[in-house]
Amino acid sequence: MRPFKYTNAKDVPSALKLAAGNPNARFLAGGTNLLDLMKEDVERPDELIDITRLGLTQIKATGSGGISIGGLGRNTDAANHPLVRQHYPLLSQAILAGASGQIRNMATNGGNLLQRTRCPYFYDVAMPCNKREPGSGCGAMEGINRMHAIFGWSEKCIAVFPSDMAVALAALDAVVKITNASGEERVVDFADFHRLPGDMPEKDTNLSHGDLITSIEIPKNNLADHSYYLKVRDRASYAFALVSVAAAFEMKGNLISKVRIAMGGVAHKPWRAMKAEQMLIGKEPTEANFKLAANAEMADAKPLEHNKFKVELGSRSIVRALQMALNGGKS
Protein backbone atom coordinates (compact mmCIF):
# COMPACT_ATOMS: atom_id res chain seq x y z
CA MET A 1 0.00 0.00 0.00
CA ARG A 2 1.46 3.34 -1.08
CA PRO A 3 1.64 6.21 1.36
CA PHE A 4 -1.39 8.46 1.21
CA LYS A 5 -2.78 11.46 2.93
CA TYR A 6 -5.86 10.82 5.02
CA THR A 7 -8.40 13.62 5.05
CA ASN A 8 -11.63 13.69 6.96
CA ALA A 9 -14.35 15.51 5.05
CA LYS A 10 -16.80 17.36 7.28
CA ASP A 11 -19.60 17.92 4.81
CA VAL A 12 -20.49 17.34 1.19
CA PRO A 13 -19.13 20.63 -0.19
CA SER A 14 -15.78 20.14 1.50
CA ALA A 15 -15.58 16.53 0.29
CA LEU A 16 -16.23 17.66 -3.26
CA LYS A 17 -13.70 20.46 -2.96
CA LEU A 18 -11.03 18.15 -1.62
CA ALA A 19 -11.62 15.70 -4.45
CA ALA A 20 -11.56 18.43 -7.05
CA GLY A 21 -8.19 19.53 -5.76
CA ASN A 22 -6.45 16.21 -6.28
CA PRO A 23 -6.94 13.94 -9.31
CA ASN A 24 -5.24 11.09 -7.42
CA ALA A 25 -7.55 11.34 -4.42
CA ARG A 26 -10.26 8.78 -3.77
CA PHE A 27 -13.29 8.83 -1.53
CA LEU A 28 -13.14 6.36 1.33
CA ALA A 29 -16.48 5.01 2.54
CA GLY A 30 -16.76 1.39 3.69
CA GLY A 31 -13.31 0.67 2.31
CA THR A 32 -14.02 -3.03 1.98
CA ASN A 33 -12.89 -3.19 -1.63
CA LEU A 34 -10.68 -0.10 -1.87
CA LEU A 35 -8.37 -1.03 1.01
CA ASP A 36 -8.26 -4.61 -0.21
CA LEU A 37 -7.06 -3.38 -3.61
CA MET A 38 -4.65 -0.85 -2.11
CA LYS A 39 -3.01 -3.66 -0.13
CA GLU A 40 -2.64 -5.53 -3.42
CA ASP A 41 -1.03 -2.40 -4.94
CA VAL A 42 -3.80 -2.38 -7.55
CA GLU A 43 -5.35 0.88 -6.35
CA ARG A 44 -2.78 3.60 -5.77
CA PRO A 45 -4.41 6.81 -4.54
CA ASP A 46 -2.22 9.37 -2.81
CA GLU A 47 -5.07 10.78 -0.80
CA LEU A 48 -8.14 9.23 0.82
CA ILE A 49 -11.04 11.51 1.61
CA ASP A 50 -13.10 9.93 4.36
CA ILE A 51 -16.74 10.61 3.50
CA THR A 52 -18.36 8.53 6.24
CA ARG A 53 -19.27 11.58 8.28
CA LEU A 54 -21.28 13.37 5.60
CA GLY A 55 -24.66 11.91 6.47
CA LEU A 56 -26.40 10.75 3.26
CA THR A 57 -27.50 7.63 5.09
CA GLN A 58 -31.25 8.13 5.13
CA ILE A 59 -33.77 5.70 3.70
CA LYS A 60 -37.13 7.31 3.00
CA ALA A 61 -40.21 7.16 0.81
CA THR A 62 -40.11 9.52 -2.16
CA GLY A 63 -42.97 11.79 -3.13
CA SER A 64 -43.78 9.58 -6.11
CA GLY A 65 -44.23 6.47 -3.95
CA GLY A 66 -40.79 5.05 -4.50
CA ILE A 67 -37.87 4.91 -2.13
CA SER A 68 -34.63 6.82 -1.73
CA ILE A 69 -31.62 5.10 -0.21
CA GLY A 70 -28.71 7.20 1.00
CA GLY A 71 -25.48 6.62 -0.87
CA LEU A 72 -23.48 6.45 2.33
CA GLY A 73 -25.87 4.25 4.28
CA ARG A 74 -24.60 0.82 5.14
CA ASN A 75 -25.71 -2.27 3.23
CA THR A 76 -27.05 -3.89 6.41
CA ASP A 77 -29.34 -0.96 7.08
CA ALA A 78 -30.66 -0.93 3.54
CA ALA A 79 -31.37 -4.67 3.63
CA ASN A 80 -33.20 -4.46 6.94
CA HIS A 81 -35.13 -1.24 6.53
CA PRO A 82 -38.88 -1.94 6.90
CA LEU A 83 -39.72 -0.06 3.70
CA VAL A 84 -37.17 -2.04 1.73
CA ARG A 85 -38.17 -5.37 3.19
CA GLN A 86 -41.84 -4.71 2.67
CA HIS A 87 -41.82 -3.17 -0.80
CA TYR A 88 -38.50 -4.24 -2.32
CA PRO A 89 -37.69 -7.63 -0.78
CA LEU A 90 -35.70 -8.40 -3.93
CA LEU A 91 -33.22 -5.71 -2.93
CA SER A 92 -32.98 -6.97 0.66
CA GLN A 93 -32.38 -10.47 -0.55
CA ALA A 94 -29.71 -9.46 -3.05
CA ILE A 95 -27.83 -7.41 -0.47
CA LEU A 96 -28.04 -10.27 2.02
CA ALA A 97 -26.72 -12.70 -0.60
CA GLY A 98 -23.51 -10.70 -0.79
CA ALA A 99 -20.37 -10.98 1.29
CA SER A 100 -20.78 -11.51 5.05
CA GLY A 101 -22.52 -9.86 7.96
CA GLN A 102 -19.34 -8.00 8.86
CA ILE A 103 -18.76 -6.68 5.36
CA ARG A 104 -22.38 -5.63 4.93
CA ASN A 105 -22.04 -3.64 8.16
CA MET A 106 -19.13 -1.75 6.62
CA ALA A 107 -19.96 -1.47 2.93
CA THR A 108 -22.01 1.50 1.79
CA ASN A 109 -24.75 1.50 -0.82
CA GLY A 110 -22.86 3.80 -3.13
CA GLY A 111 -19.63 1.90 -2.60
CA ASN A 112 -21.35 -1.36 -3.43
CA LEU A 113 -21.97 -0.06 -6.95
CA LEU A 114 -18.31 0.86 -7.30
CA GLN A 115 -16.86 -2.54 -6.50
CA ARG A 116 -14.21 -3.55 -8.95
CA THR A 117 -14.10 -6.91 -10.64
CA ARG A 118 -12.81 -9.94 -8.77
CA CYS A 119 -10.98 -11.20 -11.86
CA PRO A 120 -7.79 -12.78 -10.46
CA TYR A 121 -5.71 -11.35 -13.30
CA PHE A 122 -6.89 -7.88 -12.32
CA TYR A 123 -5.98 -8.53 -8.70
CA ASP A 124 -2.50 -9.91 -9.39
CA VAL A 125 -0.07 -7.14 -10.36
CA ALA A 126 2.29 -9.75 -11.80
CA MET A 127 -0.30 -10.52 -14.50
CA PRO A 128 -1.32 -8.59 -17.59
CA CYS A 129 -4.66 -6.80 -17.29
CA ASN A 130 -6.09 -4.07 -19.49
CA LYS A 131 -8.40 -2.91 -16.76
CA ARG A 132 -5.60 -2.37 -14.28
CA GLU A 133 -2.95 -1.36 -16.78
CA PRO A 134 -4.42 -0.37 -20.12
CA GLY A 135 -2.53 -1.91 -23.01
CA SER A 136 -0.93 -4.71 -20.98
CA GLY A 137 -3.27 -7.33 -22.42
CA CYS A 138 -5.99 -9.52 -20.94
CA GLY A 139 -4.60 -12.35 -18.83
CA ALA A 140 -7.90 -14.12 -18.59
CA MET A 141 -8.79 -14.30 -22.28
CA GLU A 142 -6.37 -17.16 -22.98
CA GLY A 143 -6.10 -18.10 -19.33
CA ILE A 144 -8.44 -19.52 -16.74
CA ASN A 145 -11.80 -17.88 -17.39
CA ARG A 146 -14.35 -20.03 -15.60
CA MET A 147 -15.63 -17.06 -13.61
CA HIS A 148 -15.76 -14.64 -16.54
CA ALA A 149 -18.30 -13.00 -18.79
CA ILE A 150 -20.57 -14.59 -21.37
CA PHE A 151 -22.31 -11.37 -22.41
CA GLY A 152 -21.00 -8.05 -23.59
CA TRP A 153 -17.27 -8.68 -23.22
CA SER A 154 -14.66 -7.24 -25.53
CA GLU A 155 -11.29 -8.39 -26.78
CA LYS A 156 -9.83 -6.09 -24.15
CA CYS A 157 -11.65 -7.42 -21.11
CA ILE A 158 -13.82 -10.36 -20.09
CA ALA A 159 -14.23 -9.47 -16.43
CA VAL A 160 -17.55 -9.60 -14.59
CA PHE A 161 -18.99 -7.16 -12.11
CA PRO A 162 -19.28 -8.79 -8.68
CA SER A 163 -22.10 -6.95 -6.89
CA ASP A 164 -25.35 -8.66 -5.92
CA MET A 165 -27.11 -5.52 -4.77
CA ALA A 166 -26.61 -3.90 -8.17
CA VAL A 167 -28.29 -6.82 -9.93
CA ALA A 168 -31.45 -6.20 -7.95
CA LEU A 169 -31.21 -2.45 -8.56
CA ALA A 170 -30.92 -3.10 -12.29
CA ALA A 171 -34.07 -5.21 -12.16
CA LEU A 172 -35.89 -2.56 -10.12
CA ASP A 173 -35.18 0.26 -12.61
CA ALA A 174 -33.26 2.26 -10.03
CA VAL A 175 -31.66 5.61 -10.72
CA VAL A 176 -28.45 6.91 -9.17
CA LYS A 177 -28.26 10.49 -7.93
CA ILE A 178 -24.84 12.02 -8.28
CA THR A 179 -23.30 15.32 -7.26
CA ASN A 180 -20.24 16.28 -9.24
CA ALA A 181 -17.11 18.12 -8.24
CA SER A 182 -18.75 21.47 -8.97
CA GLY A 183 -21.72 20.64 -6.84
CA GLU A 184 -24.08 19.97 -9.76
CA GLU A 185 -26.59 17.18 -9.33
CA ARG A 186 -27.56 14.69 -11.97
CA VAL A 187 -29.62 11.53 -12.18
CA VAL A 188 -28.38 8.49 -14.07
CA ASP A 189 -30.52 5.51 -15.05
CA PHE A 190 -29.12 2.36 -13.60
CA ALA A 191 -28.65 0.84 -17.02
CA ASP A 192 -26.31 3.73 -17.88
CA PHE A 193 -24.39 3.72 -14.65
CA HIS A 194 -22.08 0.76 -15.33
CA ARG A 195 -20.31 0.26 -18.64
CA LEU A 196 -19.42 -2.62 -20.86
CA PRO A 197 -15.65 -2.92 -21.26
CA GLY A 198 -15.33 -2.03 -24.95
CA ASP A 199 -12.05 -0.29 -25.61
CA MET A 200 -11.83 1.23 -22.17
CA PRO A 201 -12.10 -1.55 -19.62
CA GLU A 202 -10.30 0.63 -17.09
CA LYS A 203 -13.54 2.56 -16.77
CA ASP A 204 -16.12 0.54 -14.83
CA THR A 205 -18.77 3.24 -14.67
CA ASN A 206 -19.75 6.54 -16.23
CA LEU A 207 -18.72 8.48 -13.14
CA SER A 208 -16.08 11.16 -13.41
CA HIS A 209 -13.44 12.04 -10.86
CA GLY A 210 -15.02 13.79 -7.92
CA ASP A 211 -18.53 12.48 -8.53
CA LEU A 212 -20.28 11.53 -5.32
CA ILE A 213 -23.22 9.13 -5.18
CA THR A 214 -25.69 10.82 -2.86
CA SER A 215 -28.59 8.43 -3.18
CA ILE A 216 -30.17 5.61 -5.10
CA GLU A 217 -33.85 5.84 -5.93
CA ILE A 218 -36.19 3.03 -6.84
CA PRO A 219 -39.54 3.90 -8.37
CA LYS A 220 -42.79 2.55 -7.00
CA ASN A 221 -43.70 -0.89 -8.29
CA ASN A 222 -45.89 -3.84 -7.41
CA LEU A 223 -43.26 -6.52 -7.80
CA ALA A 224 -42.93 -7.43 -4.13
CA ASP A 225 -45.40 -10.33 -4.23
CA HIS A 226 -43.41 -12.14 -6.88
CA SER A 227 -39.71 -11.60 -6.57
CA TYR A 228 -36.63 -13.64 -5.85
CA TYR A 229 -32.88 -13.25 -5.89
CA LEU A 230 -31.12 -16.53 -6.72
CA LYS A 231 -27.39 -16.82 -6.30
CA VAL A 232 -25.42 -19.82 -7.54
CA ARG A 233 -21.93 -20.12 -6.16
CA ASP A 234 -19.10 -22.54 -5.48
CA ARG A 235 -19.84 -22.70 -1.78
CA ALA A 236 -23.04 -22.19 0.15
CA SER A 237 -22.23 -18.72 1.46
CA TYR A 238 -19.60 -15.96 1.40
CA ALA A 239 -18.64 -16.46 -2.23
CA PHE A 240 -19.08 -14.50 -5.42
CA ALA A 241 -21.72 -15.61 -7.87
CA LEU A 242 -21.12 -17.97 -10.75
CA VAL A 243 -24.48 -16.74 -11.93
CA SER A 244 -27.17 -14.83 -10.09
CA VAL A 245 -30.65 -13.82 -11.13
CA ALA A 246 -32.92 -11.10 -9.80
CA ALA A 247 -36.42 -11.95 -11.01
CA ALA A 248 -39.69 -10.18 -10.29
CA PHE A 249 -43.05 -9.91 -11.96
CA GLU A 250 -46.53 -8.56 -11.56
CA MET A 251 -49.64 -10.55 -12.42
CA LYS A 252 -52.88 -9.42 -13.93
CA GLY A 253 -55.29 -12.29 -13.59
CA ASN A 254 -53.44 -15.35 -14.83
CA LEU A 255 -51.00 -13.42 -16.93
CA ILE A 256 -47.69 -11.71 -16.34
CA SER A 257 -48.23 -7.99 -16.84
CA LYS A 258 -44.79 -6.71 -15.92
CA VAL A 259 -41.54 -8.57 -15.47
CA ARG A 260 -37.99 -7.66 -14.57
CA ILE A 261 -35.02 -10.01 -14.85
CA ALA A 262 -31.37 -9.09 -14.29
CA MET A 263 -28.34 -11.31 -14.07
CA GLY A 264 -25.07 -11.14 -12.16
CA GLY A 265 -21.83 -12.97 -12.80
CA VAL A 266 -22.29 -12.93 -16.56
CA ALA A 267 -21.13 -9.51 -17.73
CA HIS A 268 -19.13 -6.39 -16.98
CA LYS A 269 -22.33 -4.86 -15.60
CA PRO A 270 -25.63 -6.14 -14.22
CA TRP A 271 -27.21 -7.79 -17.25
CA ARG A 272 -30.85 -6.98 -17.88
CA ALA A 273 -32.44 -9.97 -19.59
CA MET A 274 -34.58 -7.84 -21.90
CA LYS A 275 -35.29 -10.62 -24.37
CA ALA A 276 -36.58 -12.90 -21.68
CA GLU A 277 -38.66 -10.08 -20.21
CA GLN A 278 -40.28 -9.32 -23.56
CA MET A 279 -41.15 -12.96 -24.13
CA LEU A 280 -42.92 -13.23 -20.80
CA ILE A 281 -45.19 -10.23 -21.04
CA GLY A 282 -48.78 -11.35 -21.33
CA LYS A 283 -47.87 -14.99 -20.79
CA GLU A 284 -48.88 -17.41 -18.08
CA PRO A 285 -46.21 -18.03 -15.48
CA THR A 286 -45.57 -21.64 -16.43
CA GLU A 287 -42.33 -23.54 -16.41
CA ALA A 288 -42.53 -23.96 -20.16
CA ASN A 289 -42.85 -20.22 -20.71
CA PHE A 290 -40.04 -19.54 -18.26
CA LYS A 291 -37.83 -21.95 -20.18
CA LEU A 292 -38.60 -20.45 -23.54
CA ALA A 293 -37.79 -16.99 -22.26
CA ALA A 294 -34.61 -18.09 -20.51
CA ASN A 295 -33.33 -19.96 -23.54
CA ALA A 296 -34.06 -17.01 -25.78
CA GLU A 297 -31.99 -14.77 -23.51
CA MET A 298 -29.09 -17.19 -23.28
CA ALA A 299 -29.04 -17.82 -27.02
CA ASP A 300 -27.02 -14.62 -27.41
CA ALA A 301 -24.37 -15.66 -24.90
CA LYS A 302 -20.79 -15.91 -26.08
CA PRO A 303 -19.03 -18.19 -23.63
CA LEU A 304 -15.27 -18.59 -23.30
CA GLU A 305 -13.15 -21.71 -22.93
CA HIS A 306 -13.93 -22.46 -19.28
CA ASN A 307 -17.33 -20.90 -18.74
CA LYS A 308 -19.54 -22.65 -21.27
CA PHE A 309 -21.54 -24.01 -18.37
CA LYS A 310 -22.78 -20.50 -17.58
CA VAL A 311 -25.09 -20.64 -20.59
CA GLU A 312 -26.98 -23.66 -19.30
CA LEU A 313 -26.64 -22.52 -15.70
CA GLY A 314 -27.91 -19.06 -16.62
CA SER A 315 -30.93 -20.49 -18.33
CA ARG A 316 -31.77 -22.80 -15.45
CA SER A 317 -31.21 -20.02 -12.95
CA ILE A 318 -33.64 -17.71 -14.72
CA VAL A 319 -36.25 -20.46 -14.70
CA ARG A 320 -35.63 -21.29 -11.07
CA ALA A 321 -35.67 -17.67 -9.93
CA LEU A 322 -38.97 -17.10 -11.76
CA GLN A 323 -40.44 -20.22 -10.17
CA MET A 324 -39.33 -19.05 -6.76
CA ALA A 325 -40.80 -15.64 -7.47
CA LEU A 326 -44.05 -17.27 -8.50
CA ASN A 327 -44.22 -19.01 -5.14
CA GLY A 328 -43.55 -15.81 -3.27
CA GLY A 329 -39.94 -16.75 -2.66
CA LYS A 330 -40.61 -20.19 -1.19
CA SER A 331 -39.45 -23.41 -2.81
Binding site: A79, P82, Q86, S92, Q93, L96, G101
Partner: peptide, 21 residues
Amino acid sequence: LLDEAKNGDASYVTEDLRKKS
Protein backbone atom coordinates in the same frame (compact mmCIF):
# COMPACT_ATOMS: atom_id res chain seq x y z
CA LEU B 1 -25.14 -11.62 15.83
CA LEU B 2 -27.26 -12.07 18.95
CA ASP B 3 -28.02 -8.35 18.92
CA GLU B 4 -28.81 -8.46 15.21
CA ALA B 5 -31.31 -11.23 15.91
CA LYS B 6 -32.85 -9.14 18.68
CA ASN B 7 -33.25 -6.31 16.18
CA GLY B 8 -35.07 -8.69 13.87
CA ASP B 9 -32.42 -8.43 11.16
CA ALA B 10 -32.84 -10.80 8.23
CA SER B 11 -30.42 -13.05 6.38
CA TYR B 12 -30.31 -14.63 2.93
CA VAL B 13 -31.92 -17.79 4.32
CA THR B 14 -34.74 -15.94 6.11
CA GLU B 15 -37.97 -17.47 4.85
CA ASP B 16 -40.12 -14.37 4.57
CA LEU B 17 -38.31 -11.08 4.35
CA ARG B 18 -41.49 -9.07 4.23
CA LYS B 19 -42.61 -10.37 7.57
CA LYS B 20 -41.07 -7.88 9.89
CA SER B 21 -40.03 -8.46 12.48
